[in-house]
Amino acid sequence: MEAVLEVQDLTKSYGGSQALKGLTFSVRQGACFGLLGPNGAGKSTTMKIITGIVEADGGSVRILGKSIKKDGRQVRKFVGYVPQNITLYEKLSARDNLAFFGQMYGLQSKELDFRIDEVLQQIGLFNRQREPVEKFSGGMKRRVNIAVAMLHRPKLLILDEPTVGIDPQSRNHIFELINSLKEEGVTVVYSTHYMEEVEALCDDVAIVDHGDLIAHGSLADVLSRFGHSVVYVESPGFEALVPEVMGGSVSRQGAGWIIDCESPVNTMKGILDLAAARSVEISTMGIRRPSLESVFLSLTGTSLRD
C-alpha cells in the first residue's frame, strides 16, 4: 500500500546532544501508526519535524510524496497536528476556537460552519459549544484540541500524547474518534506512553529510544519478532513442582505462576505430565501472548513509563 509518510535518515541535534540519529520509517495509507518511546527518546522531535515546526539537520520527510521542506505550505493542507499541550484560547468558546483554527486551515463560511457542527458532534460537545474553553474539564479540552486538527479533513493526523491526564469517558471518546477516522481512511500517527492504547488502536508501530529506531513494523510482527508468549498456571500445589519445570524460568504473578519459555505448547505438556505424576491439581492453564510492555522491556531494558 502507498506510504503517506516517509521519513528517511532523519537527524537532529540540540547543542551537543543528538536527539535523532538517522531515523527511517514509513507509514502506510489508512494505518494507525504508533510511535513509542520513553521521555527524551525523540518522539516529539520527530513529530515536530514531520509537521514543519522544527527543521531537521539531515534526512528528509515526504508526505503524500511531497517534501515537507520544499512544499511545506502545500503539504500542511493535508496534515492535522495535535500537540501534546492543550493549545486553545481559554477565554474563547469551543466554537470560536474551532472557527479560528478552521479559518487558519483555509475553511470559509458555510463549509466552516458545517465542519464545526460535524466535529462538535463527533467529540460529543455540540451542546456546550458556546461555553468558554476555560470552563471545560481536562478531557473535554483534549477533545477540542483534537477536533481543531480534524476540521480541514486532513489525510494525515498526527497526535502527540493526546490522552495525557484525562478521564475514562474522554479517553473512550478519543478512541472512538480515532477509530472512526481510520474507517474514513485517515492515516494516524499516534505517540503515547500507554502501551494498551497502542495495542487497542494501532496497526503498525515504531519504537524509538535515544534517537534510534529499535523496532518497526506491524504490531503483530513486532510482537512476534521481539516478544514471546508465556505460560500461565494456577494451581494450589504448583510450588512443589517449580524445581522440576523444564524449558523456562518460573516466577510468581498474582494468584498464579508465569513460565517464560521458548516453546509454550511443549512446556504446557510437560507441566501437565508432571502434575499428573505428582497428583497436583491444575485449576487454570493457558498461553499468554506477548505484550508491547514486555517487548519494550526486552529491547530497551527499561519500562516505557520510567
Binding site: K48, I53, R76, Y81, M104, Y105
Partner: peptide, 13 residues
Amino acid sequence: ESGMLSRLRTTSL
C-alpha cells in the same frame, strides 16, 4: 510559550 504559535505554524497561515 504555550505552543500556540508552533501549532499555528502547522496550518496554512
